[in-house]
Write a protein that binds this DNA or RNA. Structure first.
Lengths: 204, 204
DNA sequence: TGACGACATATCCGAAAGGATAAGTGGCAT
DNA sequence: ATGCCACTTATCCTTTCGGATATGTCGTCA
């Protein structure tokens, strides 16, 4: 089996090569940037699998993947990255990548995944696909004061100002003020829009 | 490598055995129900991987998986099924399954997946995790007339009755009538609650 | 044909909602 | 201590909602 590893991180590249060749059945070539990888692909095809580091010189994110896939449409190419998110992984797959490997993967799993992909399968770590994207403490909630958040929650529950006032032990005018402020901050025109926006932002 | 295949569908079981043993390095045992599988596990451990059909006698859905995992906590067990959904696959994984295999998988991929799981990895077909669950035509929408659905959509967009009237080329009183009817049908008290309910039901 | 349901329009009325503006507390920081 | 900010309460006024009720046109189905 022949694998081409393209990663500008020497340590990772070398350990990967060592692991794969230790197995015995695998031959590896390596490159430190996309241009080198492409010229190797031109001169010594075919490879069972090509690993491209998402962040190495010449990649420009997933552009490098797409370009390489255009030049070598039949080549199985996987993306390897230390920082990428689920979105990137999905984008890579829909661009036609053979898989996606985070560098956080244990070496053994990594070798297994490479073999798996070389067999023609698609691989993405399970936890990458199942876990919801980590919501960075919502940009919306940041801008709102405590009270405003409490009131907003009332709105998302379809309550009237009077109800919210009772729940928070305040008077109705106060709620109306908070509600008005909320509209300004959220850029909406009425309580329904505010409720929907809060819901869509994943609040409450 | 030793694999135990438990499936009450003889044809599938036999072809799987044939495929795996053709490879040469794999030994297989097979069972047609959960009880047989368990007794084989007791008598002839260890197996690198156990495949349990979700629908064979004794399984009761994922209960059989959980029971078997309790009896053999260190055993790697994967679920195989012809009908299951993404939810079931996720549930199986979170119960500690080594993977999930739909019977729609090509034989070659199936063998690859089995080898992959036997190596200690978790496997689920990529498309199982990425595709959204297909919403059965919503029970809510069923009960509503065409106009009511159009009006409800207006509500979910935070529009006023007047706006909705303009959009649908009707007069405001008409919209108010539909809105009122909607509240009765949905069992809500105001437009915000109606909007939220429609959103939660996956409408629009 | 007559009953029924979906759809449309209208009027009346009280209750909310929404906008503007004013003015008070308390905490916290420069 | 002065100013800023979050929070509070209040009043006025206009618009919108929400409920009740009445009336009319369609088309369908028995």
């Amino acid at each position: 089996m022949r694998v081409l590893i393209a990663d500008d991180h020497d340590l990772l590249r070398d350990t990967l090569v060592a692991f794969l060749e230790a197995n015995g059945e695998t031959q590896t070539n390596s490159a430190a940037n996309l241009a080198d990888a492409v010229s190797i692909l031109k001169q010594e095809p075919p490879f069972d699998l090509v690993l491209l580091d998402l962040n190495m010189p010449g990649m420009n994110g997933l552009n490098g993947l797409n370009e390489t896939l255009e030049k070598f449409p039949d080549q199985r190419i996987a993306i390897i990255s230390g920082i990428a998110t689920r979105e990137v992984a999905e984008a890579a797959l829909s661009s036609g990548a053979a898989g996606f490997i985070p560098k956080t993967l244990p070496a053994k799993s990594l070798v297994n995944a490479i073999n798996f992909m070389a067999m023609g399968e698609q691989y993405v770590p399970i936890n990458f696909m199942t876990t919801e994207e980590a919501q960075p403490p919502n940009p919306l909630a940041e801008k709102l004061t405590n009270r405003e958040n409490q009131v907003l929650q009332g709105l998302t529950e379809g309550k009237s100002n009077k109800q919210i006032a009772r729940d928070l032990d305040l008077t109705e005018p106060t709620i109306k003020l908070h509600v008005k402020t909320l509209y300004r901050k959220l850029g909406v025109a009425n309580r329904t829009q505010a409720a929907i926006m809060a819901r869509e932002a994943g609040l409450f």
